[in-house]
Nucleic acid binder design. Structure first.
Lengths: 197, 197
DNA sequence: GTCTATATTTGGATAGAC
DNA sequence: GTCTATCCAAATATAGAC
């Protein structure tokens, strides 16, 4: 007796998710170029061939992962924007960004690895581009926040803020024992003035 | 008539340097994994086979480049240490680091790409390790500087300083129009108090 | 000392059986 | 829907001629 359509659909969904998360794991562990389809198939417990049934190939897998990441970045902004207070918004950005990286340092490392890909790499630079674009959006919002806080040079200040924040994320993702908590406090003290004054 | 030993030696030196710098160029342009020996040979204007006469292979070429980089890092510290004034030392570190990256953004990007290589990549993580070690040395010196400046928490402050500095380098190497000059002024204002007080 | 030709390996992708 | 077997391209590395 043939499987029902619903049953098939469920199987497809589950297989696809399974392969997707296996790919995520292997990419984080090995990096994009060094990761092989073979590895991913092994990790997912399926045959190589099956992967091509669900994804366009290695690049298709990456595309999926990058999309998930941009969603995540957008989520942090959205979270921050929910507050009416600019100083509080900034604090949420800091906490959102550092909290996420603290939970999963390998992920940020991977994306950083991706973003530092040489531009000449036509395949990968496309995805690096996507990440940059999302970060640009975040940056715009940030500039607004600084404007509303009455900064003299909001854009420059926002840039300085971003630099610091990304520097911290970078260090955290590269050096295991990095004390995020303390540093986070420093950033907040530096950039987020207390409301009551 | 056979060539003299000196002549041979000269030719060897020159060929080796030629290949080495070609490798550097191609690595910066393409990244380690994507760069092929073929590319490097073409760039150097020699045959593929010859490269193996001078280097152990692709990895040997990378080793050479990383060694050059660690020397460069050490150079910045040395330069800074030449000043007796701690605040001035710090300023030299900032200027040295940012100056270098401004002159050659691709290089920093490449090394960052290398350092964000997943740890599981046994081959590359070795070189990533070498870079980290040199940076640790730099960090130690930095802590001393902050100590001598009378900071309350020199290590934490040094860490924060490094984070900011590397964040700026990261942004500069990824975003073309990044205004290093202005940001550099901000850092110096923040971390390097004027001597006369 | 350098080149050309070739061996070897690896990994992405496809075709067809079950 | 999944697997096995195979193809094909690319790239590292080596052998041997000049």
């Amino acid at each position: 007796m043939p499987r029902s359509r619903e049953e098939n659909e469920r199987i497809r969904q589950s297989a696809m998710a399974n392969i997707g998360s296996a790919a995520m794991e292997v990419f984080l562990e090995r990096g994009y170029h060094a990761a092989s389809i073979e590895d991913i198939a092994k990790r997912a417990g399926v045959a190589k061939g099956l992967i091509y049934n669900y994804y366009r190939g290695k690049e298709g897998l990456l595309a999926e992962i990058v999309r998930a990441r941009t969603d995540e970045i957008a989520g942090v902004i959205e979270e921050a924007a929910a507050s009416p207070e600019p100083s509080e918004q900034l604090r949420r950005i800091v906490e959102g960004a550092l909290g996420h990286i603290d939970r999963n340092p390998k992920a940020y490392r991977f994306f950083l690895h991706l973003q530092t890909q040489p531009e000449e790499d036509k395949i990968l630079s496309k995805y690096s581009e996507m990440l940059n674009k999302e970060m640009s959006r975040q940056f715009e919002t940030q500039c607004d926040i600084f404007r509303r806080m009455g900064a003299e040079e909001p854009v420059l200040r926002s840039l300085y803020f971003s630099s610091t924040l990304h520097g911290v994320m970078l260090m955290k993702s590269v050096y295991p024992g990095y004390p995020v908590e303390e540093i986070q406090a420093l950033i907040i003290r530096e950039f987020c003035p207390d409301r009551p004054r």
